[in-house]
Every structure is written in structure tokens, then in C-alpha cells.
């Protein structure tokens, strides 16, 4: 009996050491890949979100083009969890040889919220592809204009429910910023996924929701839900009658910004090769068609590495202030 227990303790301690290795930096020998013959083998793109979601589809659409441009196999690896933090962690543990990229939509938010321990010192953006546009959606039977909505909120402060997916993510930030900009008192309800949220608005369980144009397309075409206000500077061709936040005097045009990242200590020449390849992918016809099919072309998405790094820095600072207010 005693012997059995001793044996067991030894095993468990070995195991614990290993568990620790899962978390810590598994000293990845930084054998820098040679830029001259890059890429010479398969590349892996880590996606921090589930298969089939917006960021996953984006990564796969770009990878399709990149494979032809770079002439290598590129594997998309979904590592769901923590709004992309798990994928960042795993990428950080991989060697910085340019063969591990990350596709992420929430980098600036998770960094601002503190759930992502790696900042711009550890990861560098390669390029931003999409700057998605939000709108405030309601059931067509409930409201027909933003004025009606504002009136309803003023009559029942804190009672009007607005759905969004996830918590402390872009959706909740958007609703919070809307409350501040328009001086409204809303009741944000975090939903599990877009499906549940759409059903909530259609079934009359939620008064409104924030979502992008792609996922809501079929319901909007059908006329069962309508956008009240678009979170951008300019009106949208498909919905010419819907006012924008800027028109209403609200300074609120943020959206999900989907981009590729890589470890900062990667050979700069490799980053440049990737950046150029991505520019080419961005301009390809197939990618353009994918954007149009999914209503992602409403705003020009492209930003190169240096520009997007600057923007990310600004965003992190801005979101940090909001996070502090949310979490106080």
C-alpha cells in the first residue's frame, strides 16, 4: 500500500512539472528562419476563434489566396478560447521563424482588458484586412427609427435590452460606448452566440442587438429586422435611409478589425515578404468577392504593418479607459 502511494506521488510530481511547462515559455530556441528561401515548408495560421465564425472564415479566405501566392501549404489551426488569448499564448511559445502566424480580431480589446499578457512588444501586426461595420438592429415590428428607440429608452431607463455576443468583447464595448455617446441607459444582455441573439430579437425577447451586416444579411433582406443606426461616417448604399452615428453627433465608428499578427522578433525581411503577399491576396478577385458576399467591403480594410501597429496602440489606450470604467 505504502509503496503504491510513493509511486503515485512521484508520478504526480512529474506530471505537475509538465503542466507548468504548458503554461510557461517552453524556451523555444529562436533559430531564425532564413529569409532568402522563405517560405520553404508548411506555414501554420493559428485562429483563436471557433471554426465557422467570422474570424475563421476570414483566415480561411485569405489563406486560400496566400497558398497560391507563396506556393506552400498553409494549415489553419483553430485554437478556441479566451477570445483569442489561447492562440496568442501558443504562438508565443512557438519559435519566431515565421512559420506560425495568428489571425485575430480582438487583440486590442484583450490587451486592454488585461486577459492577454502579450502586447505589441511581443506581437507585430502584419496587415489589417477588415474593418467591419456595426449597426443597431431591432425587430421591424417594434421600432422604425432611431428617434422612436431613444424615446423608448428615455421612458424606461435601464429596461431596454440590447443583445451582443460574449462579455467584455467588442459587442459590449460598442453598447457601452453607445450609452455614453448618446447618453442612454441600456440593459446589455450578453448572449452565447449570434444564433441565439438573432432568435431573441426575432422572438421579441430582446429589444435590440448590435451586430455586423454579414451575419444579419438574410434577416435584413427578408425585412424582419431593420438597422436603426450604422456605426460609421458614411451611409451605406444598401441602406440609404439609415442614419449614421456621426450624423447624429455620436463619435462612435469602431468595429471588429481582423488582422494577421506574428511574433515581434521574427526576421523583418520575412515580415515584409508576408506583408507583400497579403497585399496581393487582399487585391485578388476571389477575396474581393468574398468580402462583397459577406458585406465586409463597406469600409476599406487594408492597413499595412506600420500603420496598423500605430492604430492598435491608439485603440489599446482608448479601450483601456473604457475597460476601467466597466470594471471599476
Amino acid at each position: 500500500m505504502k509503496r503504491k502511494i510513493n509511486y503515485f506521488i512521484v508520478l504526480i510530481s512529474i506530471f505537475t512539472i509538465f503542466l507548468a511547462a504548458c503554461n510557461g515559455d517552453s524556451d523555444a530556441s529562436s533559430e531564425s528562419g532564413e529569409a532568402s528561401n522563405y517560405p520553404s515548408r508548411n506555414i501554420e495560421v493559428l485562429v483563436g476563434h471557433g471554426a465557422g465564425g467570422g474570424t475563421d472564415l476570414f483566415a480561411r479566405a485569405v489563406v486560400n489566396e496566400l497558398e497560391d501566392i507563396l506556393d506552400v501549404n498553409i494549415n489553419v489551426v483553430n485554437q478556441e478560447g479566451g477570445a483569442g488569448v489561447v492562440a496568442l499564448q501558443n504562438a508565443y511559445n512557438a519559435p519566431s521563424d515565421g512559420y506560425t502566424l495568428i489571425a485575430d480580431a480582438a487583440f486590442s480589446i484583450t490587451t486592454a482588458a488585461g486577459t492577454n499578457a502579450y502586447g505589441l512588444d511581443d506581437f507585430t501586426p502584419i496587415a489589417r484586412f477588415q474593418n467591419d461595420t456595426y449597426a443597431l438592429w431591432v425587430n421591424a415590428e417594434d421600432f422604425s427609427s432611431i428617434e422612436e428607440f431613444i424615446e423608448a429608452v428615455e421612458e424606461n431607463p435601464g429596461q431596454v435590452t440590447v443583445g451582443g455576443t460574449g462579455s467584455l468583447g467588442m459587442d459590449e464595448m460598442t453598447v457601452f460606448m453607445l450609452e455614453q455617446a448618446a447618453d442612454m441607459d441600456l440593459n446589455f444582455v450578453p448572449m452565447e452566440g449570434a444564433g441565439e441573439m438573432h432568435a431573441g430579437v426575432l422572438g421579441g425577447h430582446l429589444d435590440a442587438m448590435v451586430d455586423e451586416f454579414g451575419p444579419t444579411k438574410s434577416l435584413a433582406d427578408d425585412g424582419s429586422i431593420v438597422p436603426l443606426v450604422v456605426f460609421s461616417e458614411e451611409r451605406i448604399d444598401e441602406f440609404p435611409d439609415v442614419p449614421t452615428t456621426v450624423e447624429l453627433g455620436w463619435d462612435l465608428t469602431d468595429g471588429n478589425e481582423r488582422a494577421f499578427y506574428i511574433k515581434s522578433d521574427t526576421d523583418p525581411e520575412i515580415i515584409e515578404i508576408l506583408e507583400n503577399a497579403m497585399k496581393e491576396a487582399y487585391e485578388s478577385e476571389d477575396y474581393k468577392r468574398y468580402e462583397e458576399d459577406n458585406y465586409l467591403h463597406l469600409r476599406d480594410g487594408w492597413l499595412n504593418s506600420a500603420d496598423f501597429e500605430e492604430r492598435t496602440e491608439e485603440l489599446i489606450e482608448k479601450y483601456q479607459v473604457i475597460m476601467d470604467e466597466l470594471q471599476q
Binding site: 449570434a194 426575432l202 444579411k217
Partner: peptide, 11 residues
């Protein structure tokens, strides 16, 4: 409705 009931339906 165009609403996915599960992960596979989303794909």
C-alpha cells in the same frame, strides 16, 4: 431563419 442551431450548422 438563417440562424445556426449548432456549430456544424454555422459552418
Amino acid at each position: 431563419l438563417g440562424i445556426p442551431g449548432g456549430a456544424t450548422a454555422a459552418i
